[in-house]
């Protein structure tokens, strides 16, 4: 439509452009408001990974308090403004500190200690195994029933033995 206007009345060009812009902008915002209003699910997806500083251990998506409801609306607004998940999280971190995140930001520090402790335990255990295990000499001293000729009877005998011991 604006093209036609352009051709007919050249002197009104600036005005036409302005009109076209305004109309398209208006159209754009209405379309945006109708289709791109973030759904509850989109809001909850982000809220699930955030914690407000007051409600400890309750993720934002399920927290029933009024303050948390306002936070969820804030997420909705920011989503409507076209911000990404990361930007929104960053917004909350900037305003309320790293505690709003579900995990400490410094992953190395949070995972390293338990990982090292576990590895240390594993190392100690395996070094212990090597020390404890007596080589072949002892193993052959223990009566083996590995190659027992009648495995089924042997199994019964062993089971009965164990059962007797339990008594």
């Amino acid at each position: 439509m604006s093209n036609i206007k352009l051709r007919i009345t050249n002197y009104k060009l600036p005005l036409a452009i302005l009109l076209a812009l305004v109309v398209s902008l208006l159209l754009a915002t209405t379309v945006f408001a109708q289709d791109d209003m973030p759904t509850d699910d989109e809001v909850n997806k982000i809220a699930k990974e955030l914690y407000c500083p007051v409600c400890e251990s309750t993720p934002l998506d399920v927290c029933p308090t009024e303050a948390c409801r306002q936070w969820r609306e804030l997420i909705r607004q920011q989503l409507a403004e076209g911000k990404s998940e990361e930007e929104i999280k960053q917004y909350f971190v900037t305003h309320y500190g790293a505690r709003v995140l579900s995990e400490p930001p410094n992953r190395i520090a949070s995972y390293l200690v338990p990982a090292l402790a576990f590895l240390a335990g594993a190392f100690l255990l395996f070094r212990g195994f090597r020390m404890w295990i007596k080589p072949v000499a002892v193993e052959s001293a223990v009566p083996t029933d590995d190659a027992a000729p009648v495995p089924q009877d042997d199994y019964i005998r062993r089971m009965e033995e164990e059962l007797k011991k339990r008594k």
Binding site: Y51, G97, A98, R99, S102, E103, P104, S110, P114, A117
Partner: peptide, 27 residues
């Protein structure tokens, strides 16, 4: 160890860096 560390990590973090953190289910 993981459980214990997760429970005390917020304290340690606050004590040494002044930063309050949350250790949530993902960890």
């Amino acid at each position: 160890v993981v459980s214990f560390w997760g429970v005390i990590y917020p304290l340690i973090s606050e004590l040494f860096t002044g930063q309050k953190v949350t250790v949530g289910p993902p960890f």
